[in-house]
Computed example of a mutant assay.
Amino acid sequence: MKHIVLSLFLCAFVTAVSGQITQDATKQLRIYEDDDFFNIWGRGTDRGYSNGSGASYLYMKEKKSVFLDKWILAKAGPNAINVYEWGLMQVMITPNQIADSSFIPSDFYYAGALFATHGLTSYNPEKKYSLHSEFVFGVLGPWALAKETQTFFHHLIGYQSPMGWEYQVPNAPLINYNFTYERMLWDRIKSLEILGSVNIRAGTMTSGISALSYIRFGIFNPYFGNRNLATATRRRFQLYAIARPQFSFTAYNALLQGGIFKSRDTNFEQLEGNQKTHMRRFSIGMDYGIAIVVNRMSLSYTQKTHTEWMSGTGKHSVGNITLLIPISRKTIINK
């Protein structure tokens, strides 16, 4: 049954993630779905990073920023185009054999996280760079309700019920600060852009650093926007392919290692003592796909493939579907 649901989903969505700004839609809703059963090669799984579901409200504002927005969320200069965001997301990680009701020491822990985000993406059209700063706060473990979510949806589509959630990582708070710097490297041809970026993460959820390159080829508007709105939104139809090679170093990941309170949980301490696998600190990956934008709406599909996160578990691929819906056509001057 899950194969049928996947086939219908992929037939309806044949597009890829778009990080591009929409300057003439100052309020937008973003629907975001990761699932490792989404796979363009027909090799879907249900293990590792199994699912991530989220929704975000993106907006520009006329009022000057105060408190966190002013002091923690970085801007790319006084004339930057600033897009703020509030989001809510749930993610879950499971071992390969979810029908096994016993602890599997050579695989991933069961882990779930539920968290909110507040961030700012600030674009500098003249110097062609952007800054994305984000504050994350939420919970890890049973409080995140990942067991209930996965059990419900598997029952809904008639798929195998997960049996090992009693072995999930314990409850813990998640607080993180993430920062990304992105700059244009090459755009001498109108149909091709190459960008480079660095992402830094620190907190009780995950800590590490990543280096990425973003390549897109096709028909599109300027990635970093333009102070002239007519230039920034000249193309009402956009279609392009993307590739995003990346290299990451992870110092800590609560979903793979347990949260900051794991030493207080005697049951988890016993599981950890029997664990045979361990988190890989270095990984490489490649995201690729295709994106379509019509007027102010975009729909996207990206296949995200990475080397193993945990030793002995093998490489992993997750499909992503993102829908960006405009809910306002008003154009404002950012402050």
Rank of each mutant, 00 (worst) to 15 (best):
M310L: 15
A16Q: 04
L156T: 13
H306S: 14
K70Q: 12
V139P: 09
I333P: 00
P222L: 10
A111I: 01
F220S: 01
N320F: 01
Q257E: 15
N79T: 12
F67W: 15
M163G: 03
L271G: 04
T121I: 07
A16G: 15
G285L: 07
L256H: 09
N171W: 00
I72K: 03
S56L: 01
G285P: 06
H316E: 00
R47Y: 01
G158Y: 13
E126Q: 08
S283D: 15
L192C: 00
A211N: 06
D24Q: 07
F220Q: 01
I219L: 11
T22L: 09
S283G: 15
N320T: 13
I200S: 12
G218P: 06
A254K: 10
K63H: 12
F237I: 09
V294C: 12
Q270S: 12
E85T: 08
F103C: 03
Y167W: 13
V5K: 09
T45M: 06
L120F: 04
I209F: 04
D34Q: 05
V91A: 09
A16L: 05
L185H: 09
K27S: 11
I215V: 15
G312R: 07
F137Y: 05
E272Q: 14
D187M: 11
G319I: 08
C11W: 09
S56T: 10
L239A: 15
F9K: 00
S7C: 11
Y288W: 14
I72L: 14
E166H: 12
K335E: 08
F153C: 06
M163T: 06
W86A: 05
I40T: 05
S317T: 15
E85G: 03
V91P: 01
K2E: 07
Q150K: 08
W309E: 04
I332D: 03
K147Q: 13
K147I: 05
A55L: 11
L192T: 03
A202F: 11
M89A: 09
G273C: 00
V66N: 11
D265P: 06
A172P: 02
R43N: 12
G54W: 02
S263R: 10
Q97K: 15
F268N: 00
S53G: 06
L145W: 07
E126V: 14
H3G: 09
S133H: 03
N79I: 02
T117R: 12
N178K: 06
R216M: 12
D265F: 03
R280I: 10
F103A: 05
I332C: 04
K262Y: 11
Y223G: 04
V5Y: 00
V139W: 00
Q97T: 11
F9T: 14
W165C: 05
F261I: 07
L131W: 01
I4W: 10
T204W: 06
L323N: 05
P245H: 10
E182K: 10
R296G: 03
K64W: 14
I31H: 01
Q150W: 08
L10G: 00
T307K: 11
H316S: 04
A55W: 03
G319Y: 07
P95A: 07
D24S: 08
F37L: 14
K276C: 07
T277C: 13
Y57W: 13
L256S: 03
S213M: 13
K2A: 07
N253Y: 02
P326K: 02
W309P: 01
D287G: 11
G52N: 02
N253A: 11
T180A: 07
T233M: 13
F115W: 02
V318N: 03
W86F: 15
H154S: 10
T180Y: 08
